[in-house]
């Protein structure tokens, strides 16, 4: 009798490990994607390219929430800043390319200048935000921190958008394509160069980001701060420096996403609103503060968007992910990858 109960107790968690909601959704999603991509490979390409960019946005958002407990609503405006930087850096480069169409270095590497500068400017804005706003708030009071920083970032977002509108106007300004070359053949599917580079940049950046968090001394310190600030200080980790780095990194990634994606979403003052919402979908879907989950969630959301856009209609693209999030929150309030153990990199 006792042994029977004991084995039962052992089997329940095992069963639940494989039959839970998260893995069910992942399996269904993977299967759907495989079926669809056989029918229409361009959907797969789009999912991977945009999913990678949402992963950069959502990863940064999750990092800021995990390390600093800030629910950032200014994240989308960093995306907007990224599109602006790309616009102003690439436009002169574009005319240089037109003047010297045979300069291959310029033609192939020129577009990256805007992306790199966008990352740097985003990081600088992140550091300034920490120095001028969050540090001042932290020094005065840590009560109601989450609510206060939410209001602070929401207000900051309104400021960003209005300053951008004042300076650059309300009209969309974009770059139709970074690389003026014919589509490249990938496994029998013609893929536009911009799409391909978007995908490669996203994957490369995510890999570096993951390695940094997982393996480097500073990345480890960041995760330590997100798990236990007092413990981190005991180890000699200065919180201020980690906070600065966290904001620099996450804002830099958002600006990079904006710069890379400008061929898809041209600059307007509110171009960041949609990526911000998507990043929040992803972060809520994955579980707050969980960077690894956010990356997987980003590809899920991108897939749902692509499938909705293709099979239903483009204006349903935001409706379906939101619907799924409501369902997830009803049945698993901690998010798909949420758990008892809180931290930026934990499942």
């Amino acid at each position: 009798m006792t042994t029977a109960t004991a084995t039962n107790l052992k089997q329940v968690p095992l069963l639940r490990r494989y039959l839970n909601l998260t893995s069910a959704i992942l399996v269904v999603a993977a299967a759907a994607m495989i079926v669809v991509s056989i029918q229409n490979p361009s959907l797969l390409v789009n999912t991977l390219a945009t999913g990678g960019m949402w992963a950069l946005m959502a990863g940064g958002l999750a990092l800021v929430f995990g390390v600093m407990n800030i629910p950032s609503f200014v994240h989308g405006d960093l995306f907007m800043v990224g599109t602006l930087v790309a616009l102003f850096v690439f436009t002169p480069i574009q005319s240089m390319i037109q003047d010297a169409p045979n300069d291959f270095v310029l033609k192939w590497l020129g577009p990256f200048a805007g992306m790199i500068l966008a990352f740097i400017l985003g990081a600088v804005i992140g550091v300034l935000m920490e120095l001028l706003l969050f540090r001042q708030l932290r020094r005065r009071s840590r009560e109601q921190w989450v609510m206060n920083t939410f209001l602070l970032t929401a207000g900051l977002s309104i400021m960003f958008e209005n300053v951008a509108m004042m300076a650059f106007g309300n009209l969309p300004q974009g770059i139709s394509r970074y690389w003026d070359v014919p589509p490249i053949d990938v496994l029998g599917v013609p893929v536009a160069m911009d799409r391909l580079v978007t995908f490669i940049v996203a994957m490369g950046t995510l890999a570096v980001f993951a390695l940094f968090l997982q393996r480097s001394r500073t990345g480890r310190a960041m995760r330590a701060v997100s798990m236990d600030e007092t413990g981190a200080q005991m180890a000699g980790i200065g919180l201020t420096r980690i906070y600065q780095l966290t904001l620099a990194l996450s804002c830099g990634l958002a600006a990079l996403a904006g710069a890379v994606l400008i061929w898809l979403t041209p600059f307007t003052p509110t171009v960041g609103a949609s990526p911000l919402l998507i990043a929040w979908y992803v972060v809520i879907l994955a579980g707050l503060g969980n960077v690894q989950g956010a990356v997987v969630g980003a590809f899920l959301v991108a897939m749902v968007q692509q499938l909705t856009g293709y099979y239903l209609a483009l204006n349903w693209v935001d409706v379906l992910p939101t619907g799924i999030i409501i369902l997830v929150l009803l049945f698993k309030p901690s998010g798909l990858f949420g758990s008892e153990v809180k931290g930026v990199w934990e499942q």
Partner: peptide, 13 residues
């Protein structure tokens, strides 16, 4: 070095 009463370990590591 300081070892606190609640340990302050990094639970997810």
């Amino acid at each position: 070095g300081y070892v606190s009463e609640s340990s302050n370990l990094f639970a997810g590591m």
